[in-house]
Amino acid sequence: MKERDRQLTDALKKAFPAQPEREKQLLVQIERRLPARKSRLAMLPLLLNCIAIIGCVSLLLITDWSETAHYIAYITTEYLNEGISLNSLDYNILLLPLLAITIIWLLYNTIEEYRNNRNMDILEQALKQR
């Protein structure tokens, strides 16, 4: 900075001096007026649930259902005709109900999480209005 510029800076700082007392009061006022803001971490469970649901749905979509249907039909026929034991079942078949239960559980959790967040917002608003 040139000498002339430095002089102007110093003169301006003297012309508009700090007012510590007033600034302190203002700081307290602003702190009182700060609206409640939800932490980003509070949204984490909701986000994780959403990711899990997307994962499960994608898994369901990429599954070859015609192959699975044939397999279920084959197992059912075999069981009805010869009464095969559970040991001979392909355990992949258990993936289906497991996936379905997981999706239902995740959906329930997500809805609950969303409702909780909404209730918290309403509560915060009510407290602020008081």
Binding site: R22, L26, Q29, I30, R33, L34, P35, R37
Partner: peptide, 12 residues
Amino acid sequence: DDLTQETFIKAW
């Protein structure tokens, strides 16, 4: 003072 308050609340 009002504008300063508004600025910091917006920043928050």
